[in-house]
């Protein structure tokens, strides 16, 4: 049962032949494949990492740009608003000024008109007064009254000795 002989040598040859051939057909190709795969995965991971970084940088850049653009837009809006406000104010001021001028001018005209009217009125009143007085005098002074008035006047002259020669 336990018999050591030259078959041990054969078994050793078996082992070494197997070692040599398996190394060639199994271990080396598999190891190469595993290494290759590991390298590729590493490369892919590095690549992915690089791409991720790149994407993040781009994102940051775009966000900055967006922020800048927003700020710029805000500035433009603000500027426009300020300008519009200023213009509106100018317009209102001008309008007010014009209105003021107009008002002053009108007031002046009114004043003038008033003056003219007053003058006219005064003239008219004088005329009418004379006219009315004439009419009144004409209507009330009949022959008798007229005579009496003349007589009174003459009497008055007498009373005051106006007609008397001194």
């Amino acid at each position: 049962m336990v018999n050591i002989n030259t078959t041990m040598l054969w078994q050793l040859i078996n082992f070494f032949v197997l070692l040599f051939l398996l190394r060639k057909f199994l271990y080396s190709p598999i190891k190469d494949m595993l290494d290759q795969r590991a390298a590729q995965i590493n490369g892919d991971l590095d690549d992915a990492e690089a791409r991720r970084k790149e994407a993040e940088e781009l994102k940051a850049k775009y966000e900055q740009k967006l922020k800048d653009a927003r700020g710029e837009a805000q500035e433009i809006v603000d500027n426009a608003e300020t300008r519009a406000n200023k213009k509106a104010k100018d317009i209102i001021n001008k309008a007010e000024e014009r209105a003021e001028n107009l008002k002053a001018k009108k007031l002046e005209e009114i004043e003038q008109a008033k003056k003219e009217a007053a003058a006219e009125l005064r003239d008219s009143i004088a005329d009418y007064t004379v006219l009315a007085a004439n009419k009144l005098i004409q209507e009330q002074l009949d022959q008798k009254t007229h005579q009496k008035m003349i007589m009174d006047f003459i009497d008055q002259l007498d009373e005051e000795k106006l007609g008397e020669l001194q």
């Binding site: 054969w10 078994q11 078996n14 032949v17 197997l18 051939l21 398996l22 057909f25 199994l26 190709p29 598999i30 494949m33 290759q36 795969r37 590729q40």
Partner: peptide, 23 residues
Amino acid sequence: GWLSVIIILILAKYLTSSLSIRP
């Protein structure tokens, strides 16, 4: 033993006959 060596080698050759990155 010889038979085993031959079978193992055939199996190894078969299993690794078409290696690719995606196993």
